[in-house]
Simulated scan of single mutants.
Amino acid sequence: MSERADCALRAAEAGAAVASGSFRDGIAVETKGQKTDVVTQADHDAQAQVVSTIRDRYADDPIVGEEDEELGAVPDAGPAWVVDPIDGTNNFVRGIRTWTTSVAATVDGEPQAGATVCPVLEDTYLLDSGTAYQNGEELSVSDRTDPEEFVVVPTVWWEFDRREEYAAACAGIVERFGDMRRFGSAQLELALCAAGAVDGVITNVHVMPWDSLVGVGLVEAAGGVVTDIDGEPWRHDSRGLVASNGQAHDAVLAAAREAEDVR
């Protein structure tokens, strides 16, 4: 394992262990402006543990984090770390098992290594040297080619004033593909695409880097395709995120663009 992948894994595992200690334990919940944008003390404590673990080995690298005083944007040059202590906090506070701790190591804004740990599900996804792994086994996206056999996920969150876009994206999925899922954690949804469990993940909104970088790296390393809403290669500052197994990416992209028609 490369040094940065090892650090990402150890940091994600350490943060996940802290968060797990508060899962289903009646923890207090606050909002960060929107009613559905929640945060808990577990988020802060888990991020502190992740940051401490990274700092033990990379004292001077910039760290981008969802919570607290870390940077809010990924540097375009040089190495950096991107941290999401609990991706899927709404699931976490409701006692739903689908949440993760994710840590990405980037160089020049691109994911080079990373880990997404799902402690309650007992699954760990690792990106290392251009290869994606789940629990130590190498991953590959699905080989399905028929869109009517696809399962596609509408990911992240459309605010209340954008619900027509949310509805249009869902309609775009159910009209084209076999079925739809929604798990409430973008990092987990992208990891599942890399593992071939789902065939596409879509949104037309900007996805924050802590919600996406590890997952995007996993999908691409597993042989999939990730673009923005215009079909261009995805970056951490792109608008929209469309991931697929690459077999019918145009159809997956078309479903995402349904949301554009009602903006």
Rank of each mutant, 00 (worst) to 15 (best):
M1T: 06
S2V: 08
D6Y: 04
R10E: 08
A11M: 10
E13C: 01
A16H: 04
A19M: 08
S22F: 10
I27S: 07
I27H: 01
A28K: 04
V29S: 00
T31H: 15
K35S: 10
A42K: 14
D45N: 13
V50C: 12
S52D: 14
R55M: 08
D56Q: 11
Y58L: 03
A59K: 14
I63V: 14
I63D: 09
G65L: 11
D68Q: 08
G72V: 05
A77P: 03
V82H: 09
I86Q: 15
I86A: 04
D87I: 09
N90E: 15
N91P: 03
V93Q: 04
V93L: 00
I96L: 15
S102P: 01
A104F: 11
A105Q: 01
V107Q: 07
G114S: 13
A115I: 01
T116I: 08
P119M: 11
L121D: 05
E122F: 00
D123L: 03
D123Q: 13
Y125E: 07
S129K: 09
L139A: 02
S140W: 02
D143L: 10
R144E: 12
E148A: 08
E148L: 08
V153Y: 03
E159I: 12
E159Q: 10
Y166L: 02
Y166A: 01
D179Y: 12
S185K: 01
A195D: 12
G196F: 06
D199M: 13
G200I: 00
G215R: 01
V216Y: 02
L218T: 05
V219E: 07
E220L: 10
P233H: 13
P233Q: 07
D237T: 15
R239D: 15
N245L: 05
G246M: 11
Q247D: 06
H249R: 12
L253Q: 13
L253S: 03
A254P: 03
A254I: 08
R257W: 07
E258D: 15
